[in-house]
Amino acid sequence: MTTVLAVANQKGGVAKTTTVASLGAALVALGNKVLVVDLDPQGCLTFSLGHNPDRLEASVHEVLTGDLAAKDAVIPTEDGVDLLPATIDLAGAEALLLMRPGREFALKRALASLLDDYDTVIIDCPPSLGVLTLNGLTASQSVLVPLQCETLAHRGVGQLLRTVREVQQITNPDLVLLGALPTLYDARTTHSRDVLSDVSDRYDLPVLSPPIPRTVRFAEATASGATVLAGRKNKGAQAYRDLADNLAKHWAGSELVTFSTGSVE
């Protein structure tokens, strides 16, 4: 059975797109066939995987509006994941969807014909709680929340969790909240641990292992049009490999590995 995972946080700059791209590549390395879906009109995931959104003739916009079958918009990437890309046209799709009945189910309907072709589908939701994010959550079985380990990082987390609960009540009762993924983590400071502890306690939110460290390798990888896994060994790539292993075992039936923020080194 295909696993569909949404990666969502309406706050920008939390390494959401980096998480989708790197986790996807790490799962490919484990032998999974992976599709990543760019739901952000800025097309950051598309760009980070080596494709120029301004030069694409087909994207998820045409898929959501019903003008194109999803399989006809999917393109390969050098990292081994398949990509359903985004262009700036996607900004207009949100307005079009708002006028349609069942608008929250557009992506789920579009992906249905692709699920047999992939082991895992990862959806990069935009940094908002609009109809595109609702489509991502409605189409998914589980949701992961990247959380920047800095002051005020938890602003908006409560609103996102309320949105998840509403989706569970209305459009997707089977949606599971996996928990928060610590990103931009600096093990040298107590500040990162304090932020995670606060979020964990305040929202009773599981914190996934391992934390994703802050490293310049992520920016370098994005600029090169490939994920951090494509370069030489580094701690960021290893963290995503460990996360992929954790999630793959969980989806196979094992307990999800989390950690106590007070014991993180």
Rank of each mutant, 00 (worst) to 15 (best):
L23E: 10
A25K: 06
L27W: 15
L27H: 10
V28E: 09
A29C: 10
G31Q: 06
K33D: 12
K33Y: 05
D38F: 13
L39W: 01
D40Q: 01
P41K: 03
P41Q: 04
Q42Y: 08
Q42L: 07
G43W: 05
C44G: 11
C44W: 08
C44T: 10
T46H: 06
S48C: 12
S48K: 07
P53D: 13
R55I: 09
R55L: 15
E57Y: 06
A58C: 06
S59R: 07
S59K: 14
H61C: 08
H61V: 04
E62T: 12
E62G: 14
V63T: 07
T65F: 03
G66I: 02
D67R: 11
L68K: 10
A70H: 04
D72F: 08
A73M: 04
V74N: 01
V74S: 03
V74F: 03
V74L: 02
T77C: 06
T77N: 09
E78P: 04
G80D: 08
A86K: 05
A86M: 07
T87Y: 11
I88W: 08
I88Q: 14
D89L: 12
D89S: 10
L90H: 05
A91Y: 06
L96M: 13
L97D: 03
L98Q: 15
G102Q: 11
R103G: 01
A110G: 15
L111E: 03
A112C: 09
L115N: 06
L115M: 14
D117P: 07
D119C: 09
I123Y: 01
I123N: 01
D124L: 04
D124Y: 03
D124S: 04
C125N: 15
P126T: 00
S128I: 00
S128D: 11
S128W: 01
S128P: 02
L129E: 01
G130M: 02
V131M: 13
V131Y: 02
L134P: 02
T138Y: 01
T138E: 02
A139V: 04
Q141E: 14
Q141D: 15
Q141R: 14
S142G: 14
S142L: 06
V143G: 01
L144E: 02
L144Y: 00
V145F: 07
L152V: 12
L152K: 10
